[in-house]
Computed example of a mutant assay.
Amino acid sequence: MRYNLVGVCKNFYEEEGWGWISIEGEDDVWVHFSSIQMEGFKSLRKGEKVLFDLEEKPNLKEQSRRAVNVRKSY
């Protein structure tokens, strides 16, 4: 697990509840709405800067890099 990374929301599909976060110089990271730390409807906007922890599970083909504890960067 890697902690306190900075990324930018590449896209987020509100109707499906998931999207991707870009990290400079690395592969994109998958994010699920349940990992977003906020009150009310949990979503991200394209281009929004976020802070998160990175959970890596190399044994998974899809979503092997997952953002957890995602919070908006102000």
Rank of each mutant, 00 (worst) to 15 (best):
R2K: 13
R2H: 10
L5K: 06
L5W: 00
L5F: 01
V6N: 12
G7I: 03
G7M: 06
N11Y: 14
F12G: 07
Y13E: 14
E14Q: 12
E15H: 11
E16S: 10
G17F: 03
G17D: 11
W18E: 05
W18I: 00
W20D: 10
I21N: 07
I21P: 09
S22L: 09
S22I: 02
I23D: 05
E24S: 11
D27A: 14
V29K: 02
V29T: 05
W30S: 13
W30C: 09
V31F: 08
I36A: 04
I36N: 03
I36E: 06
Q37K: 14
M38G: 01
M38I: 06
M38T: 14
M38L: 06
E39S: 12
E39F: 01
F41C: 04
F41S: 08
K42Q: 12
S43A: 10
K46F: 00
G47V: 03
V50E: 10
V50K: 03
F52C: 06
D53C: 03
E55V: 04
E55P: 00
E55D: 13
E55S: 12
E55W: 01
K57C: 04
K57N: 15
K57M: 07
P58Q: 10
N59R: 07
N59Q: 14
K61H: 09
S64Y: 13
R65E: 04
R66A: 04
A67C: 09
N69I: 00
V70T: 09
R71E: 13
R71C: 10
K72R: 15
Y74A: 14
Y74Q: 14
